[in-house]
Design a protein around this nucleic acid. Structure first.
Lengths: 219, 219
DNA sequence: TCATTGGCCGAACAAGTGTTTGTTTTTAGC
DNA sequence: GCTAAAAACAAACACTTGTTCGGCCAATGA
């Protein structure tokens, strides 16, 4: 399912012939019981989210799970590939959540609203992985930037579809609509504070504002 | 005019008595002919905007203006204070631009629109300074974070006023309105591409969407 | 003309960076 | 129980990071 060309460490290099056609799906490496890759990813997500990519050192990441810096390079060829893995998982989680939310809804506007709420919940109250997707700029990680952009674009395709389904007057600029909505949603990461704000309420409010406009007086 | 408690280098320390009342406005240090502080700030803004704070080293900054790393510390006590200076200048520039734009407009909605367009122009097509304000997160620069937040909050007060002036139905949540609008505007930094997109058009479009809502069919 | 000092150089410092390599321990399959 | 691979250790490497500090020189105001 992995679409990023994630550069793996040397020991996991492609088997043999450089031009072997019919490459197997390459079953995920056995995965033993004692494998701290999940914890490694969790910690990386936590720190990348809180401090960004350049603001987080590999020592910081491995320290909190009692691992040594060098051990990271058994799992990933470089720090940037660790970020790529976290990012991919983040996109995966948001996608799942959003797709799940819209599946049970009918009606273009209700589906869009459900998607926005799910997007926000994942972004504000859920996992660190999702937040990394919004927090870290692909340009900060040159080696894997194209992969990250591709992932994000593919995710936003969901919203392209949702907006396309809206019953709008002919000639309406649906791109602006989408960009405005997603921008407002994503930026909420800046001002959102748990307890004070509520993801569901924000999502509903923003969609309503976009749908009906701001309520004008004496109407 | 400086509101950030910008920690200056040692040679510019407060004169003498620790508890001297009636402190002079402290006229800006003489500023000789040969002073490359402006170029230093320009380069810092350029790089902080493109690569973020942690992604930019002090050597990178001074190198492009043929300065040595140590010389930076004649002007600033720390790298973080350089960022603070750039940030402050950025807020100053956006503020000037926005205030200038709304001064010549009457009518609450027209003023808001003018402000958004000016905000976007500064953010997308104008100076690096303004972009730093949106790009760099205060949390990335702990030592001066409070100052940065205060600056940004003070700037956003302009929009609080503009939104407060809108003729809306009683009970409308003006905070959501403002957050949605500013969020959408700020996030445009992510997808905007010079040539393809146009700041003025984006501003007009977003304000229109917020005012009237999306145009529904057969109305 | 001369003392003053703003502005910067030159050279280093200690700490931290991502990464490599050889080796050891642990686990799974036969 | 033996073996082969997985997973991680231990210890370094080469380099970059932000920062310090003494000295130097040109410009400035008297």
């Amino acid at each position: 399912m992995s679409t990023t060309d994630l550069r793996l460490p040397a020991h996991a290099a492609r088997s043999s012939a450089p031009s072997d056609a019919a490459r197997k799906p390459r079953a995920r490496r056995s995965a033993r019981a004692h494998n701290r890759l999940p914890q490694l990813l969790d910690e990386a997500a936590r720190l990348f989210r809180a401090q960004g990519f350049h603001g987080t050192s590999v020592r910081e990441i491995v320290q909190s799970i009692d691992m040594l810096p060098g051990s990271l390079y058994y799992h990933f060829a470089a720090k940037e590939d660790l970020l790529a893995a976290v990012y991919e998982e983040g996109v995966h989680r948001i996608s799942e959540r959003v797709l799940g939310a819209i599946a049970s809804e009918t009606g273009a506007w209700r589906r869009l609203e459900a998607a926005c709420i799910a997007h926000l919940e994942a972004l504000l109250e859920d996992s660190d992985y999702a937040q990394v997707v919004i927090r870290v700029r692909p340009a900060d990680v040159p080696a894997v930037a194209p992969s990250l952009v591709a992932l994000r674009d593919r995710y936003e395709e969901i919203f392209v579809g949702l907006v396309a389904a809206l019953p709008l007057r002919r000639g309406t600029d649906r791109r602006s609509l989408r960009l405005m909505l997603l921008g407002a949603l994503n930026w909420s990461q800046t001002w959102y504070r748990a307890g004070r704000d509520d993801a569901r309420a924000i999502g509903r409010e923003f969609v309503a504002l976009l749908r009906h406009g701001v309520p004008s007086p004496r109407t």
